[in-house]
Amino acid sequence: MNIDLSSGLFYFLAAVMLFSALGIIYCRNLVHSALFMALCFISVAGLYAMINADFLAAVQIMIYAGTVVILIVLGIMITRRTTMERTSMPEKKYIFRASVLAGILFFLMSYIFITAGTLPTLNTVTLPDDTVSALAELLLDRYMLAFEIAAVLLLAAMIGAVVLAKGADEK
């Protein structure tokens, strides 16, 4: 645990993250939701940076806050022809049930996390500071096979997406 890390920063980032997450849900406009999502992802990236995962923070911002959000916004734009207002808002009748369920789940998990009090809070092993080269070594050595498979997966997803979306604008 980095002593220098101020707990204030953590609480701030967590608050931003949760607030923007709620914003995704409660925004009337879908584009606003997407923007809130970008904010949420950036705050997550901040959290990553706090715990010695700077490369991941960069990845988070580039892939999530950049690509994914932009993709989703594009998608929203393409299907904008129907009115989004009616469908974008949460349905009143489901709110109670869903909030009860989600709340129970949250409290159960919190209960587990808090009662499991014997968690070690200090990393006794010092992690390398140069996370980029350490990650690279791991990826291309121990996780070589998984890395390749991930590449194949991305290729397959790309092809699948093309096949599925093909003709979305035709017709």
Binding site: L101, A102, I104, L105, L108, M109, I112
Partner: peptide
């Protein structure tokens, strides 16, 4: 989700 909650409990 209900199932998950029950399992957790």
């Amino acid at each position: 989700l209900c199932g998950v909650i029950i399992l957790l409990l």
